[in-house]
């Protein structure tokens, strides 16, 4: 029966191609696919024509297995379309509808066809439904995979952006941390900091955690690891920017940071300057402060 269905479908697609394509294009135009002008109508037409042509070729192999060999070029085309949709910011519904909206024109064409009896019609409808559903799912899978890829890349970029090591002065580095510290980020932070210590021949590193939303035992452990590694390299660490609520939470949790900590980055910098034998002075003190 399935072979029969594929044959019927192929015949219909060959005989009635123009009408089906027209109806499909109308359906696509009426649907949401064009909304917002994210894609031109001509482009949509080209895509539809290519997909329809390849669907016919695939059916010519007398198979209804949309995962099979004969459908490979069609799957490839759909994957490309789906990927570009994901990047252009289409909704999942729009993307899936591209394939699903082909159903109605094909059913219509089957019905129109004069020499089709009831059982052949049923076979054709079943075949079309089976193939198109599978292809629709395939577009969704590719769509989601591309989105995941985008999300993953963004995550990686954020991780890279949020771990800069800044040179404040000769031998004094600052590491402003932003966001939660997990094991993966701690690794990146640690490597960056240690490499910077070597490159800058730093004596003191200030870890500023103003941008760290919460400090629990795990984050504290990661901080301590970073501090310990820096110490092994011969650099002292100062932790700064612990906000009042965080300080309270830390004490309640029993988290102890056995390192020098200062309230603000400015305080920490002052300590660092003092330790390296430097002092910040005003060139000319205001009159009331001069004693």
């Amino acid at each position: 029966m399935s072979t029969d269905g594929a044959g019927v479908l192929e015949r219909i697609l060959t005989e009635d191609e123009a009408a089906i394509l027209d109806a499909w294009n109308t359906a696509l135009r009426e649907g949401a696919s064009l909304q917002g002008g994210r894609i031109r109508e001509a482009e949509l037409r080209t895509q539809a024509k290519a997909v329809l042509g390849q669907l016919r070729d695939a059916l010519a192999s007398n198979s209804l297995d949309a995962d099979g060999e004969g459908f490979a070029p069609l799957r490839e085309t759909l994957a490309d379309i789906s990927r570009s949709r994901a990047i252009q910011g289409f909704t999942p519904t729009d993307t899936a509808n591209f394939v699903f909206s082909l159903k109605e024109p094909i059913f219509e064409a089957l019905r129109r066809s004069a020499d089709v009896d009831a059982s052949t019609l049923a076979a054709g409808v079943w075949a079309a439904g089976k193939v198109l559903d599978r292809l629709g799912l395939h577009t969704m899978e590719v769509f989601l995979a591309s989105r995941e890829e985008v999300i993953g890349r963004q995550g990686q970029e954020i991780a890279e952006l949020s771990t800069p090591v800044v040179r404040l002065w000769d031998g004094i580095l600052a590491l402003p941390l932003i966001g939660t510290l997990d094991s993966a980020r701690t690794g990146v932070v640690m490597e960056n900091l240690l490499q910077a210590i070597v490159d800058e021949e730093a004596e003191i590193a200030i870890i500023d955690i103003t941008g760290v939303p919460t400090v629990d035992t795990l984050v504290a452990q990661h901080l301590l690891k970073t501090v310990a590694a820096a110490r092994l390299m011969g650099a002292d660490c100062i932790v700064s920017g612990i906000r009042p609520q965080i300080a309270q939470t830390m004490v309640h949790l029993g988290v102890e940071l056995n390192v020098v900590s200062k309230a603000t980055l400015a305080d920490a910098f002052a300590v660092a300057l003092k330790r390296t034998g430097r002092k910040v002075v005003r060139q000319q003190a205001p009159a009331e402060e001069r004693r």
């Binding site: 640690m190 590694a229 092994l232």
Partner: peptide
Amino acid sequence: PAVAITLV
């Protein structure tokens, strides 16, 4: 650095 990380 790599040695320091390993030791920690």
